[in-house]
Write a protein that binds this DNA or RNA. Sequence first.
RNA 1: GGUGGGGUGACCGAGUGGCUAAUGGUAGCAGACUGUAAAUCUGCCGGGCUAACGCCCUACGUAGGUUCGAAUCCUACCCCCACCA
Length: 373
Amino acid sequence: MFEFQVQRTAGAARAGTLTLPHGEVKTPAFMPVGTHAVVRGLSANDVRGTGAQIILGNTYHLHLRPGEAVVEAMGGLHRFTTWSGPMLTDSGGFQVFSLHGLRSIAEHGVEFQSHIDGTTRTLTPEGAIEIQARLGADIAMAFDHVVPGQSSPEVACEGMARTLRWLDRCKARHSELADGRQTLWPIIQGGIHDELRLRSLEGTLARGPWTGIAIGGLSVGEPKPVMHRVLELLSPALPADIPRYLMGVGFPADLLEGIARGVDLFDCVAATRNGRHGTAWLPAGRVNVRGAGLKGSTQPLDPTCDCETCTTYPRGYLRHLFVVEDMLGLRLISIHNIRFLVRLGEQARAHILNGTFEGWSREWLARHYARGD
RNA sequence: GGUGGGGUGACCGAGUGGCUAAUGGUAGCAGACUGUAAAUCUGCCGGGCUAACGCCCUACGUAGGUUCGAAUCCUACCCCCACCA
């Protein structure tokens, strides 16, 4: 039910197939983020149209609204959203990091002050697992302690060690609730410190076996070369027969950099957030859709793209939608950006299967960095 | 023709002697965004020089005047609005 097969490798890069209760995921793959059980602004059909194979939801946000009981009573996230494909729920661990002004961390768990109404909510490892079990995604994530990217070894070690202790509790609760339709993936922490990363990995594997494993705590303020170094450190030490999920990454180049270092799955809000904010990703660089340069243009946003936006609307119209602040613009650029990342994953996979990944990837990145993006 | 009100930067609109190159807002331009407290946030927005601090020029209908100093006070004129004839 939770199988992963690697079809072919190219250096550290892998082309694989992940089988989940709600379908298959061909990797490498980008997973759009649907925090509130919606990929912001998009219908389930829109998301399907991008070729996305799996989407995310968030424990913390769905616990606040509408509450896991409501989702469960409606038949789980798949029924709730009408998205029938694979889903993954994040544990709320990232909110430990992102809601830093509104929470306090203790060994027992984390107290959040709801960003919605200010009420105090407690999330524990057990609670995060219980909520996710009721939400019913294919993959549940362990509740982790994310620390900022530049954290000292002491701080990073504390977060890493706590993540491991919490992993025990997550696993125990998950085992009690197990119905065979949801799997649990652990998350490696350790900040930017190699020794901590390796200890995290070792500790995590010792608690296995796992059907997949995530790398967390990257792209949270550390320089890019540092993230690459951590990935290079982990890649050879990770089990080859389960998927590796790099959480919260990334931008287009991050996908290729990650794939080259053995990452199979990615998720990131940038595609949709940038889409809403008017930045579109193109092979030739990125474009501010609000920019005066697009005024009156009859060209497609990206002539090489096969998404709904690029095959239907001229640039001048997309710019107009942003100028008049119509919600259609937010949707159309979000669709394009997601398709851009999904397609990048598809292209990488095809090149890995063809044995042409390294050259293709090197050229793509060279063009990309030459532009200063 | 008379009386009253008013003319401020692309637009709307504050300001009623120095802290004013001129509050705000809109429009415009540019940038940021990485497991979503974000359809958000930031910067620029008279001209010229400067990497920058800053300096110079031109500006509050027009032309004069008062004053050390005027968008702000005075005079005349032009234009707009309201009412009266």
